[in-house]
Write a protein that binds this DNA or RNA. Structure first.
Length: 760
DNA sequence: CAGTGAGCGAGCTTCCGCTTGACTT
C-alpha cells in the first residue's frame, strides 16, 4: 500500500535515514540539491523589469522532478530541505516545479538527523518563508550579474574564455597579493643568543631575553660574557591548561586533513562523502560546530567508560564564522564508540581524524605545569630565560594532539650560580607571510565570509583549471647563516648554509592572474574588495527579515556596478596587458617591452608601425612578467641561434618552443631540456642529436614499399601510413608481419580519436 | 608537436550554491 505522505529532503543518504525514523506512513525522497536555476546560457535576468529572473528545471534534474511530481500527485507533500537560504529556495522551487501552493504546502526543518528532532519537526510544520527565498534570489541574481558581466570584459581585454566572479576573483586576488608580498619582502636580520648552563651535573638550556641587532652587537656581548657571573634570580611556576578544539566544520576538516594527512581539499571531501553515505559520519558540508544532545550523551558515556569521569567535560561550541547558516551539525561520527570505519586506508585515516576531534572536543582540558627560570648577569641588564613544561594531566590529549615531549628543567633555587657551558649567537632572518595552500586559502575565505562549505573545493579547482593559479613545489635557495660561538674565552665565527624559500604544494599565481587581478581591482575595486561579500550579506539579511525588497537592493547595486562595466570596455588592450618597457636593445636601440599578449606573457622588440613589424619572443623559463629583466630579454632575442654543425656538416639551430628548449637539424627536433639554447655548445648539441638519431633508428622495425611503416612507439609496436596508426596485437610478431597483414590491421583499426584539447 | 601578437567577423566562453553519480588514458 502506498504511503500517504511524501517528504522531500536534499540528500538521498539523509532520505534513507529519515524514512527509518518516520515509519510506513511516510515516503522520503530527495531532490539532489537545487532543481531549478537560471539557464546556463545567457543572462536570463530582465534588467528593465525589476530584474525578473527566468528559471528552468536544470537538465540533470528533469528526471528527478518528473519522478517527484508523480509521487506528489496522490500524497501530502512535506518540504524538508535544509533550514538556510538555499534550502528555503529549494523548497520554493519545488512548489513551482511540482505545482504546489507555497502558501499551503507544509514546510518542516531540523538541524540534526535524530529521531526526536524529526518527530518534533513533523508536529511543527510551517509554510515557506518567502522573505528567505527572496534573499536567495537576490544572492543568485547578484552572482549572475557580476559573473556574466565581468567575464566578457576579460574575454575582450585579457584572454578569451576567462572567468570572474564574486568568490573566485577574490580568491585569486589573495594569492596574487601574497605572492607580491613575498617577492618584495626584505628579511630583517638579527642574532638570537642561546646558552647552555650546567648546575649540579644537569643541563639548563636558556635563551637571551632580547635579540641582538647585528654581528657588531653580538660579538661584544659574547666577549663580555667571558667575565660574567650567571645567577638564578627567579624561579616561577605557573599552572596552565590547554583546551580541545571544536569538532570539525568543512573548513577545519579540510585544514587538518591537509596538515596531518596531506589530503587535497577535493580528496578530503570525496572521502568524507563516502563515509557519510555509509552512515559513519554526519553531513560533511557544514559551517556549524553544534552537536546534537543525543550525540553528546553517547560521547559522554564512551569517554567515562573508556577513560573515567575526570576525562569528560560536556561542551557546546559557539560557531564564530561570519555568515554561518548552521543548517547542519558539526562533522562527527554517528557512533562515538565506533573507533574505525571506512572502506580503504584513506577513508579510515579521515574517519579516525574526525572521531578523535569529536571525542576530544568533549574531554577535559590538559593541565600543564610551566616553569620559567630567570638568569641574571652580574654586569649587564640583559638576562637569560629557561622555559620548562611538564604535562600533569593529559585530558583530551589522550585522543587528539599532545605528543609534545616534556621539557624538564633541573631543580634550581634563586641565588644559585650557574656555570656557562656553551654560548651561541645565531643569525636569524625574519620571514614573509606564507604562500597559501589549498587549505589555508579555504581558511582565509571562510574568515572573510566568502564562499560556502559546498563551494570551497570547487572554487579551488576553478581557479586552477582557468589557469590563474598553479599548485607548485618551489625549490628554495641556499643562504649563509653566521654563527658566533664562545669557545674557551674566544669568540669564533663560522657559517653554515640553510635552504630558504622552499615550499611544497603551494598556490602560486600565473602572469595571467596578476594581469587580470590588476585590471579588475582598477575598474571594479568595490567587488574585489575583501568586504564586498560581508556588505551584501547585510543586505541579504535585511531582505530575509522582510525589511527590504530584493529587486530594490539589486537595482541599487546595479546602478553602481553597470557603469563600471561600460567604463572598463573603454580600456585599451595595451593598458590591460601591463606593457612594461624593460629598456633599449643595445644593438638596434629599439625598446624592449614585456607584456601580456593574446597567447600569454611575451617579449616585444620595437613598436608596431605601418613600416615595421616588431620581433616577438617568449619569456625565459621560470621568469615572470613582473620580474623579467632587460638582460634576460636580450638573451631571448638571440634565438633561434646557430649552434654549429653536425659531424656531417648540417646546421644545428637552437630555440625554445612550446615544449621547451630544443635543437633542430633538418626537420628533426631534439629536446635539450634542461640545457639552455643560448649557451648549449656544439659538442653538447652533437651528442644529443646523435643519441636521438640512434633512438629514431631503433624505432623502425620495418618499412614496406607502399610506404607502410612498422614502428616502435611508447605503447609498443604499431603500424602507420603517416596518417592513421594501428596497434599490433600482442599475439602477432611485428618483425615477420607481411604487407597484406599490416594493411588489414590498419584498415580494421578504429578511426583516429579526436581529442578536444582544452585551451590552456 | 616546436606559433603566435593589429583588427575584422562568426560563434563560442562565463557566475555561485545545493546535491550525486558518470566519467577518465
Amino acid at each position: 500500500m502506498a504511503s500517504k505522505n511524501l517528504v522531500i529532503v536534499e540528500s538521498p543518504a539523509k532520505a534513507k535515514t529519515i524514512e527509518q525514523y518516520l515509519g510506513k506512513d511516510y515516503e522520503v525522497r530527495s531532490s539532489f540539491g537545487h532543481i531549478r536555476d537560471l539557464p546556463k546560457k545567457g543572462l536570463n535576468i530582465d534588467i528593465e523589469h525589476d530584474f525578473a529572473p527566468t528559471y528552468e528545471v536544470s537538465a540533470d534534474k528533469k528526471k528527478v522532478v518528473a519522478e517527484l511530481k508523480k509521487a506528489a500527485a496522490t500524497r501530502e507533500v512535506w518540504l524538508a530541505s535544509d533550514e538556510d537560504r538555499e534550502g528555503e529556495a529549494i523548497a520554493w522551487h519545488l512548489t513551482q516545479a511540482l505545482k504546489l501552493d507555497p502558501a499551503k504546502t507544509k514546510r518542516i526543518v531540523f538541524h540534526e538527523i535524530t529521531k526526536p528532532a524529526i518527530e518534533q519537526a513533523i508536529v511543527n510544520p510551517r509554510v515557506i518563508d518567502i522573505n528567505l527565498v527572496d534573499a536567495q534570489q537576490a544572492r543568485r541574481v547578484l552572482d549572475r550579474l557580476v559573473g556574466y558581466e565581468l567575464s566578457p570584459v576579460l574575454w575582450k581585454k585579457v584572454r578569451t574564455g576567462l572567468s570572474a566572479g564574486r568568490v573566485q576573483s577574490v580568491a585569486v586576488r589573495l594569492i596574487v597579493e601574497r605572492e607580491r608580498e613575498i617577492r618584495d619582502f626584505k628579511p630583517v636580520v638579527s642574532f638570537r643568543v642561546t646558552a647552555r648552563f650546567t648546575v649540579n651535573g644537569s643541563e639548563l638550556p636558556a635563551e637571551l631575553n632580547i635579540k641582538l641587532a647585528d654581528k657588531e652587537a653580538a660579538r661584544p656581548f659574547l666577549e663580555a660574557c667571558t667575565g660574567e657571573t650567571f645567577t638564578v634570580s627567579n624561579v616561577a611556576k605557573k599552572p596552565g591548561t590547554r583546551s580541545p578544539s571544536a569538532p570539525f566544520t568543512t573548513s577545519s576538516l579540510q585544514q587538518e586533513a591537509s596538515r596531518k594527512l596531506g589530503f587535497s581539499v577535493r580528496q578530503t571531501m570525496s572521502l568524507a562523502q563516502r563515509l557519510y553515505e555509509d552512515g559513519k559520519i554526519t553531513y560533511m558540508r557544514t559551517d556549524s560546530t553544534n552537536v546534537s544532545a543525543i550525540a553528546l550523551d553517547a560521547t559522554e558515556k564512551y569517554i567515562k567508560q573508556q577513560f573515567g569521569e575526570q576525562y569528560h567535560k560536556r561542551r557546546q561550541y559557539q560557531t564564530k564564522t561570519a555568515g554561518a547558516q548552521e543548517a547542519h551539525e558539526a562533522i562527527r561520527p554517528t557512533d562515538a564508540s565506533r573507533l574505525e570505519a571506512g572502506a580503504d586506508s584513506q577513508q579510515q585515516k579521515l574517519y579516525r581524524l574526525i572521531w578523535q576531534r569529536a571525542v576530544a572536543s568533549q574531554m577535559a582540558e590538559a593541565k600543564i605545569d610551566r616553569t620559567e627560570i630567570t638568569i641574571k648577569l652580574a654586569n649587564r641588564s640583559e638576562f637569560f630565560v629557561a622555559k620548562g613544561e611538564v604535562l600533569v594531566f593529559d585530558g583530551f590529549f589522550k585522543v587528539y594532539g599532545g605528543n609534545k615531549d616534556d621539557v624538564i628543567l633541573p631543580d634550581v633555587k634563586a641565588g644559585q650560580t650557574l656555570e656557562l657551558r656553551e654560548l651561541l649567537a645565531t643569525e636569524t632572518f625574519s620571514r614573509s607571510g606564507a604562500r597559501y595552500s589549498e587549505a589555508s586559502l579555504v581558511k582565509k575565505l571562510e574568515e572573510l565570509g566568502i564562499g560556502r562549505p559546498s563551494t570551497y573545493a570547487p572554487t579551488i579547482s576553478t581557479i586552477q583549471t582557468r589557469g590563474y593559479i598553479e599548485k607548485t613545489d618551489l625549490e628554495g635557495e641556499e643562504r649563509q647563516v653566521c654563527v658566533l660561538s664562545l669557545d674557551s674565552k674566544v669568540v669564533k665565527e663560522t657559517t653554515r648554509s640553510e635552504i630558504t624559500g622552499a615550499d611544497k604544494n603551494k598556490l602560486v599565481p600565473t602572469d595571467m592572474a596578476e594581469v587580470t587581478t590588476d585590471f579588475l581591482v582598477k575598474y571594479f575595486g568595490d567587488i574585489l574588495d575583501y568586504d564586498f561579500t560581508a556588505n551584501v550579506e547585510g543586505d541579504f539579511d535585511a531582505i530575509a527579515e522582510g525589511k527590504k525588497q530584493w529587486p530594490v537592493m539589486i537595482k541599487e547595486f546595479y546602478k553602481g556596478f553597470h557603469p563600471l562595466v561600460e567604463k572598463s570596455e573603454l580600456a585599451s588592450r595595451e593598458e590591460a596587458s601591463q606593457a612594461r618597457e624593460l629598456g633599449k636593445d643595445p644593438v638596434s636601440g629599439k625598446p624592449i617591452i614585456a607584456r601580456y599578449g593574446r597567447y600569454g606573457a611575451m617579449l616585444q622588440r620595437g613598436e608596431a608601425t605601418d613600416e615595421e613589424k616588431p620581433d616577438f619572443a617568449p619569456l625565459p623559463e621560470g621568469s615572470k612578467l613582473e620580474t623579467v629583466t632587460l638582460d634576460q630579454a636580450i638573451e631571448m632575442f638571440k634565438l633561434p641561434r646557430t649552434v654549429g654543425k653536425t659531424a656531417e656538416g648540417k646546421e644545428i639551430l637552437a630555440d625554445i618552443g612550446r615544449f621547451g628548449p630544443y635543437i633542430k637539424v633538418d626537420k628533426l627536433f631534439v629536446s635539450i631540456k634542461p640545457l639552455d639554447p643560448t649557451t648549449i655548445t656544439e659538442s653538447e648539441a652533437r651528442e644529443l642529436y646523435e643519441a636521438k638519431l640512434k633512438k629514431e633508428a631503433e624505432k623502425h622495425i620495418k618499412e614496406f614499399d607502399s610506404g607502410l611503416k612498422v614502428l616502435n612507439g611508447p605503447y609498443g609496436p604499431y603500424i602507420t601510413d603517416g596518417k592513421k596508426n594501428a596497434r599490433i596485437p600482442k599475439t602477432t610478431d611485428p618483425v615477420s608481419l607481411t604487407e597484406a597483414e599490416a594493411k588489414k590491421i590498419l584498415a580494421e583499426a578504429p578511426a583516429k580519436k579526436r581529442f578536444t584539447r582544452r585551451k590552456k
